[in-house]
Amino acid sequence: MDAIILQFLNGLDKGGAYALIALGLTLVFGTLGVVNFAHGALFMLGAFCAVIVNKILNFQLITIDPEKKTAWGTPVEIKTSYAEAWLGDFGAFLVDYSVPVSILIAVPVMLLIGIIMERGLIRHFYNRPHADQILVTFGLAIVIQELIKAYFGANPIPQTAPAEFAGSANISAMLGLGDSIVYPWWRIIYFLFSAAIIAAVFAFLQFTTYGMVVRAGMRDRETVGLLGINIERRFTVIFGLAAVVAGVAGVMYTPILPPDYHMGMDFLVLSFVVVVVGGMGSLGGAVSAGFLLGILQSFASMNEVKAIFPGIDQIIIYLVAVVILLTLPRGLMGRSGVMEE
C-alpha cells in the first residue's frame, strides 16, 4: 500500500511537467494550428532563466579582514554575495529562494521570447504544410539548444531548492498512518504548482472575456475576425502565454533535474506523445494524458512490475501511446478532423 502511494506521488510531479509542456503545445496548436517542435527549447530556456538568476545573485564580494589570520598566517577572505551585502537579510532570503524568485524574471522574459518567436518566424508558416512547420521549429530548437550549449557548456548545472523545502515531508504522519511514507517537499510543491498553473490557464480561458474570444477563435477563426476582433494579436499573446507556461515549468523543475542543454528535447519527445495520446487540440486531454502517463511510468518502474515484465519501465509510455492510438484513433479526447490530412 505504502509503495503504491509513493509511486503515485512519484508520478504526480513528473506528470505535472509533462502536463504543463503538453498544455502549451496544445494551446499553440489549437490557436495557431502550428506544430511547435521548439516548445521543449522554451522549457529549457525557462530552466536556464533560473540558472542565470542564481548566478547573478551569487556574485560575490570578497573583503579581506586584516585582523583575523588563518592558520597559515594569511588574511581571511570573507566572501559575501552582493545581494547579501547590500540587502542584508532580505538578500540572504533572495539567494536561498533563487528558484522561486526566478519565476518573476522568467515570466516577462519568456513572454517576450514567445512573442518574438511568433511574430518573427512562426507567423510566416501559418499557411505552410505541417511538415514545414515541424521542420523549421525543429531547426530553431537545434539553434537555441546549441547557443545555450555554447554559453553554459554541456554539463548539467545543479540548482538547489530553498533550504526550507530541501528536506522530505513525512506524509503518512500527516495522514495519521505512521512514518512509512516520506517524500521530498520540493516534488510535492512542484505538483501543487503545476496544478495551480493549469487551473489558472483554464480559468483564464473559461472565465475572462479575452479567453472567451480566444476559444471562439479556436473554433472558427474567420467568423471571429469578421466580427472586427483582431484575433491574430490575441493568438500571438496566447503563444506568449504558452511560452510562459513552458518557461515556469522549466524554472521550477531545476531542483528536481539539473538543467542541461538537451533537457528540452528529452521532454519534447515525451510531451508530443502525451499530446497525441490526449488528442490533438484538446486541452483537457493533454493535461489528463500528462498525469496519466507520468503515473503509469512511475508504476512501471516498481521492482514488482519489472520482475514480471522486464524492461517495461523503459517503454511503458510508448507502449501506451501505441495501444491508445490504435484503439482510439484521435487519442483520449481529440476532436475529429484535426491533423488527419
Partner: peptide, 20 residues
C-alpha cells in the same frame, strides 16, 4: 494511422527499440 499520428507511432516504436 496517417499524418502526425503515423509519425508518433513510428517514433514510439523506434524509441521502444532503442530503450530495450
Amino acid at each position: 494511422r496517417s499524418g502526425i499520428y503515423f509519425s508518433i507511432l513510428t517514433l514510439a516504436f523506434a524509441q521502444m527499440s532503442y530503450n530495450l
